[in-house]
Write a protein that binds this DNA or RNA. Structure first.
Lengths: 194, 194
DNA sequence: ACAGTAACGGCACCGAGTGCCGTTGGGAAG
DNA sequence: CTTCCCAACGGCACTCGGTGCCGTTACTGT
């Protein structure tokens, strides 16, 4: 499990830090919580916090990068005889599938990302990586360079669909995320697979 | 022209400040230019800079808000017998129409917004206002609340189309912005007017 | 015991952004 | 011409996110 490595062992983990931070954000609000607060609550130094997360904003994103990797692989493995937009729709739904019981956490996380201005702004940078994954797949399937208008457009349109679905999901507790995503993605997909 | 008001007259203007700033950004780069640099170059105090623009990021956006107002009015004036997506496409093209000779400036501005991470992030906050204008029009025409999934989706999809077009425009000096916007908007519109 | 190594965390610094407040330069009223 | 009013100016001090530097600490392997 924990293979022994040379050097001083890490005193905490990204996941643990994330928990502590999200708890503080929930009780005091994101902006009113300083990095020093988080570090103190986690029992580490302010400087050390920045060794776990490059910025205060990044805490909220947890392990986004690994989710992206999964989606990349899923798309790469998608057979060429399933229509492009269908493979993408499947991938978007899979990417946003929640582990059982993870919904309340995910709700809180997404509420922060979509409603706190600083995080809303920062999200763009993460979204860019997500769009690239989508655009790259679309480019491959369309036989176009990834920087061509069409693949890019697919990336932007699907991202927009996903975010619109999330906004809707956050507002009405009754709604089902997957259904909203499916509806939104299908709608924009209609224009894209010509 | 300049109706006399009580109080000390302003020593500069947003437009002038913008010019000075963009010149510095162009020569030294956005991040390497401090607000103090801009203020000094404009002959004002650092503190005063923030009375003209709420943040360093905002300088780049010039008078975005008034353009938004124009688009809002244009949409409101659009007759109900022209199809929804057509009225929106027209509005998007009008919103992004350049004054003669303004192209080089606009290119530089958009290159900053789309390529400098801090500005890319900040742009999200401006885009939200743009999307709202679109979503509001769509909601009215569809007879739905502006916060429903469909109008929102229209806002996100059109924004995505516009930004994708701009990225393309920036990369290939030969391309015509209006043509790219038209192509992108038409593509996403196909899925949206069902 | 000792070298190697990697995480820790204090310190000092930078730059964006803000609240406070005294100063300045205009117009208008006396 | 003086005085009052008023808004813009801008210095000062402060907060907070983020970074470079560097000595310290805690563990592994010889």
């Amino acid at each position: 499990m924990t293979e022994p490595r040379p050097g001083r062992p890490a005193v905490t983990s990204r996941a643990q830090l994330e928990q502590v931070a999200l708890a503080l954000f929930a009780s005091r609000g994101f902006e009113a919580t300083t990095v020093e607060d988080v570090a103190a609550a986690a029992g580490i130094g302010r400087r050390t916090f920045f060794r776990y997360y490059a910025s205060k904003n990044d805490v909220v994103w947890g392990n986004f990068e690994s989710g992206l990797q999964d989606m990349r692989q899923l798309l790469a493995a998608s057979p060429d005889d399933v229509p492009l937009m269908e493979s993408l729709r499947t991938a978007v739904l899979a990417f946003n599938r929640l582990d059982a019981g993870a919904e309340p956490w995910h709700r809180q996380r997404m509420a922060l990302i979509l409603h706190v201005p600083a995080l809303q702004a920062h999200s763009t940078l993460r979204y860019a990586a997500w769009r690239d994954v989508v655009a790259e797949h679309a480019a491959r399937r369309l036989g176009l360079p990834p920087r061509a208008l069409r693949p890019r457009l697919v990336g932007y349109a699907l991202l927009g669909a996903a975010v619109a679905a999330y906004e809707q999901w956050l507002e009405e507790p009754g709604h089902d995320l997957e259904a909203l995503l499916d509806e939104a993605v299908r709608t924009v997909a209609r224009g894209l697979d010509a």
